[in-house]
Design a binder for these strands. Sequence first.
DNA 1: CCAACGATGGTCT
DNA 2: GACCATCGTTGGC
Length: 193
Amino acid sequence: VTPIKLNPLGKKFFNQPTVDLAKALLGKTLAINNLKGIIVETEAYLYRDDPGCHASRGLTARNAPMFGPAGHIYVYLIYGMYHCFNIVSGKTGEGEAVLIRALEPVEGISLMQRRRKTAKIENLCSGPGKLTQAFGITKKHNNLSLLNGPMQIFDSKIKHEITVSTRIGLSAGKELELRFFIAGNRFVSKKQC
DNA sequence: CCAACGATGGTCT
DNA sequence: GACCATCGTTGGC
């Protein structure tokens, strides 16, 4: 049997407008080393009229990767304990990104279970802090490119419906409907699936 | 089931 | 000194 070889997504895919990219990422596969997971939940962060976006108050040392080219990775530490993994989007210099909030684990599950200290599959990648822990994503990945680095996004032809809602955990910009997830998927982060 | 809360440290004012 | 794009635990039903 010849294994099916999926193509890594390239520049054209990441250069879509941010909201389009946030939706298009659903159903795609994130791969790092031997770990794989299907993206099931995302959030868009925009450079205009979005006070919830890290880039909304201008360039700083932390958010600098957001102002780089689409397809780069932006990782930051939240609440002193967890990392959040974002894919930079929009035009270079704008400061937009897509937060990856949940994955459906596909490959490398035993390593994910060890890192997360739980056997429960539903609890491995069902939240932004959980999936970075399961995949070993830290600041050492900050500003790498998905076009040529150890992390890649692979195409897939999964059929699914998209549900839209407000974003999770924000104090500013909480009314914007910029969260997207695969309807009915059991690996979406706890709230409102 | 679910609401409340503490852990924890980088970043920004 | 205040604020987090979170999570696991606790203690209530």
